[in-house]
Design a protein around this nucleic acid. Sequence first.
DNA 1: CAAAAAAATTTTAAGTGTAAATAATTAATT
DNA 2: AATTAATTATTTACACTTAAAATTTTTTTG
Lengths: 140, 140
Amino acid sequence: MDKNYFSLDNDIGFLIQRALQSVKSNFYEKFSKYGLTTKQYGVLIRLWEEDGLPQKELGSRLYTDGATITGIIDRMERESLVVRKKDGNDRRLTKVYLTIKGHKLKNELKQEIFELNKIILEKLTHEEVRQLKRLIKKLS
Amino acid sequence: MDKNYFSLDNDIGFLIQRALQSVKSNFYEKFSKYGLTTKQYGVLIRLWEEDGLPQKELGSRLYTDGATITGIIDRMERESLVVRKKDGNDRRLTKVYLTIKGHKLKNELKQEIFELNKIILEKLTHEEVRQLKRLIKKLS
DNA sequence: CAAAAAAATTTTAAGTGTAAATAATTAATT
DNA sequence: AATTAATTATTTACACTTAAAATTTTTTTG
């Protein structure tokens, strides 16, 4: 019964890392033609929910560090997906707004997302998906 | 029944990403004092299992791209954890060997790993851990 | 009110990830 | 045997991640 603490193939971190790699790779197969990264896609979703969020708040809602958000918004601004505007009342805040281009993507992407989810989750039953989501949330 | 395809908070990729972030953060709380990254820790485990693996093979066993391995071994060599040696028969191959320092870490880390696993998995029952591992493997 | 503390953003540095191009070596084929 | 093809490793370029330091703008507080 010599327990092997160094078994990578049954290590939860290692398994999660692999699963993420796989899910991301599915994403990029579908979304590379839009030039979007997974995180940029997250920014779009949050802004479709509520436009004009301050960067800090955007970061919180994506569980992403402020320094990371800076870079992501830089690149999305370069691609004309969003624009930055200083808040009038509190000039420490930089609010992020969708451009027309950023708005329009919402309808284009709807079908893609539907198909992506199908591809990723078809390996599991509905009940398994429900369980997996429940358990993985407990780790966070 | 207007299904919302853009719900990030129930998106499997988003959930996995968050869980990985959390697990990694647990890792770094324990392992930053050793100067090890998660991937470097993976390299060590693979070499403890079998020393002298070619870089390519090491990459395969860690599901990691050749270009990424090059950088990781560069940094581990700089830290004197491993050394590179060209294969005598096939000079395209670069084999990676543990140094004394790399060998010695094995015993030091045993207790840390045990505790890390406890911290990460204590949020779940044994049965839930088993289920989670089973389901997450199906996504890869 | 003026000085100190707090908050949001940016910058820098180091590690990791992928894709694409290059170099070196070995294998295969005509 | 000589050319072509395949394999391994490296490099480059770009995106993302974290931590720490620096900047700008409020807020707090003495």
